[in-house]
Design a protein around this nucleic acid. Structure first.
Ligand SMILES: [Mn+2]
Ligand SMILES: [Mn+2]
Ligand SMILES: [Mn+2]
Ligand SMILES: [Mn+2]
Lengths: 149, 149
DNA sequence: CATCGATTGTAGCCAAGGCTACACTTTGGA
DNA sequence: TCCAAAGTGTAGCCTTGGCTACAATCGATG
């Protein structure tokens, strides 16, 4: 009588499905912050600084939009910035960026491993990555290890 | 001298990356409509009708939210409804629902095929599906065919 | 056939994430 | 040195997608 999870068909599907959709909504809410963190880390690593205009250009949005999102990053404790200086990541922001970058790479690798062509893999990974849970990520990693070495 | 896509490193990364992020934003914009269409088709198939309250319950949102999104579905020509009657899909809505359902199933199958446990596959697929392009979907299909039969 | 509970619809609020327009710094080149 | 272009910031607008509160309708049951 254990395992209330998978077993019988009798339980109403509603609560399970509602929970899934809810988690998807939550995941979506952090997607943009994740991309910003990853991108800011990237810009700093490659050029020493992350300027609002560079961020905006890379994301394909207006600089006003970028600045507003940077304000949200600051509100959430992920970044710091002072007027007319660049944007910097807090420790939390750097941790997020590192996690997100690793995940991004793994998702692209997994897609390519199952036969998705390069540019499609890069394109789709940009959205997919934000919905890959730790459990799924671990499975991806195991799959790649198993088949590549 | 062909293939301006992948080759050398020299081109600026900006426009490519901006295009990717832009496409991801576009994909995200249709995600909710896709889920509604799939769910409405499901409710009609299983119970004969799709009522706003049922839709809301399955999605885990308030009925007011569901009704507002149903209004958007109607605006976009995907559904019809008259006061106090259920919601119905137009031909376009049904086509979308069918496409989305097939894609959902394929994404779940692919995830499980690479070793993602059942519930994680179902959970993550709910978000991932909206970012899987036709090219990627074809690759998933080919991968599954190759390894299962 | 009246009424009460469930369903449906409406109004108004909020935050996120886009945008344009305009104002203010910064900074490099003449 | 100074001044114009580039970058930065602010204001105000829009849509989407959440919510609660309240009003209206429907329908089952006494
Ligand atoms: Mn991304
Ligand atoms: Mn990414
Ligand atoms: Mn979905
Ligand atoms: Mn789905």
């Amino acid at each position: 009588m254990k395992d209330p999870g998978e077993a019988h068909e009798a339980m109403p599907a509603e609560p399970t499905q509602a929970r899934r959709f809810g988690k998807t909504r939550v995941a979506q809410a952090s997607a943009l912050l994740e991309d910003y963190a990853e991108l800011i880390a990237d810009l700093i690593a490659s050029g020493g600084e992350a300027r609002p205009t560079d961020i905006a250009r890379r994301l394909g949005v207006s600089h006003a939009t970028a600045i507003k999102t940077i304000a949200r990053l600051k509100r959430e404790g992920l970044a710091t910035s002072r007027p007319y200086r660049g944007v910097f990541l807090t420790a939390a922001g750097e941790a997020l960026a590192a996690r997100v970058k690793a995940r991004h790479l793994l998702v692209v690798a997994l897609l390519q491993a199952v036969g998705v062509p390069g540019e499609a893999a890069e394109q789709d990974a940009e959205g997919i990555e934000h919905h890959v849970s730790d459990v799924t990520l671990a499975a991806f990693s195991a799959f790649l290890k198993r088949r590549e070495g």
